[in-house]
Design a binder for these strands. Structure first.
Length: 206
DNA sequence: CACCAGGCATTTG
DNA sequence: ACAAATGCCTGGT
């Protein structure tokens, strides 16, 4: 059964988080995301059990509450978006970890993040247009935001923005990718033909 | 407030 | 008929 210490350790294992006890009552402990300061895991003792508050998609909220007796509406929080997990040993640790992970995903969710996730989903040997990425990220009309997001790609190692081209199949200018032919070389290494600074969207688009 | 590695519908020439 | 220019959309910095 998961203990208070293990729950905290799991919460702290996510990127960009910190722990805090912002209330008068030191029993209440929060794990928050740096920057936004949004909390995704609350830890406290109540009625002899360690409780966890986690954010939950309203669509799944009742699923969890119905599946486990030890999951109830968020104590001391907005019942629409929060659940409380009572650590009484009746829920498998894996399921608790899943709820905490989903809570983290919810508070770190943003159009920018979805854009990066969409870019990661472009298969090797294929390309996507800015508009396509916008659509995959949830809003077909935010293609401009896609360009902005890719401009400051925080993790080129895992976010293959070289697979993104404009609606005509043209590559980005020399100002991007730190060199004139870098994107072309990356695409060719990927198995994508580049002719005249363009790729054939019929053939390589997704 | 004014930028952007875009895209679309619409207007202009 | 066509290409080019314009305006607005979008979201994050």
């Amino acid at each position: 059964m998961m203990t208070r210490e293990e729950a905290l350790e799991f919460g702290m294992s996510f990127p960009n988080v910190y722990e805090e006890r912002p209330f008068r009552d030191p029993n209440w402990q929060l794990v928050r995301v740096k920057g936004s300061k949004k909390a995704f895991l609350w830890i406290y003792e109540r009625e002899g059990y360690t409780n966890l508050n986690v954010k939950v998609d309203p669509e799944w909220r009742d699923f969890w509450r119905n599946t486990y007796d030890a999951v109830i509406a968020g104590y001391h929080q907005n019942k629409e978006h929060w659940n409380t997990i009572i650590l009484d040993g009746t829920i498998p640790d894996k399921e608790i970890q899943r709820m905490i992970s989903e809570s983290y995903d919810l508070v770190t969710d943003s159009p920018t993040k979805r854009i990066y996730e969409a870019v990661k989903r472009i298969p090797q040997g294929h390309v996507a247009t800015y508009g396509k990425i916008a659509e995959m990220a949830g809003n077909p009309r935010m293609s401009r935001a896609v360009g902005n997001a890719l401009h400051k790609n925080p993790d080129p190692e895992h976010i293959p923005c070289f697979r993104v081209v404009n609606s005509k199949g043209e590559l980005a200018g020399a100002f991007a990718f730190g060199g004139g032919n870098v994107q072309k070389e990356l695409l060719e290494a990927d198995g994508v033909e580049v002719i005249d600074g363009k790729v054939n969207l019929e053939k390589y688009g997704i």
